[in-house]
């Protein structure tokens, strides 16, 4: 089972669970499995066509899936998947 680390801003959608285990063969299936378990999370992660939203960054281990094979990146049983919010700001 792959493990997904839920960032704290999204844990209100997962009953405050920090990590969720899913059975999936790739990133797309992992995120869809997570969305099925916690439907309120779905609109945060997926667009109307079922693709992962552009501003949602997904990491497999320490690698951005964009430099791997995006949503088709395969996951193994010991995979750690992270959802990463963009953190930025400043005076102007």
């Amino acid at each position: 089972m792959a493990r997904i680390i839920i960032p704290t801003p999204l844990r209100k959608f997962t009953d405050n669970q920090a990590t969720i285990e899913v059975d999936a063969i790739d990133i797309r299936e992992s995120i869809h499995a997570l969305s099925s378990l916690y439907p309120d999370l779905k609109k945060q992660l997926l667009d109307d066509t079922g693709d992962i939203r552009q501003f949602v960054r997904i990491y497999l281990g320490d690698e951005d899936i964009k430099v791997l094979n995006n949503e088709a990146t395969p996951v193994t049983d010991d995979a750690v998947i992270s959802i990463v919010p963009a953190i930025a700001g400043g005076i102007a």
């Binding site: 680390i5 960032p7 704290t8 920090a18 990590t19 960054r57 990491y59 320490d62 951005d64 992270s82 990463v84 919010p85 963009a86 953190i87 930025a88 700001g89 400043g90 005076i91 102007a92």
Partner: peptide, 20 residues
């Protein structure tokens, strides 16, 4: 950087893991 900050996603990952 006098007007903006940004946190590298990898640093964010490390912070979440540290918390866990």
């Amino acid at each position: 950087q006098r007007r903006r900050f940004e946190i590298d996603p990898r640093d964010y990952l490390s912070a979440e893991r540290y918390a866990l």
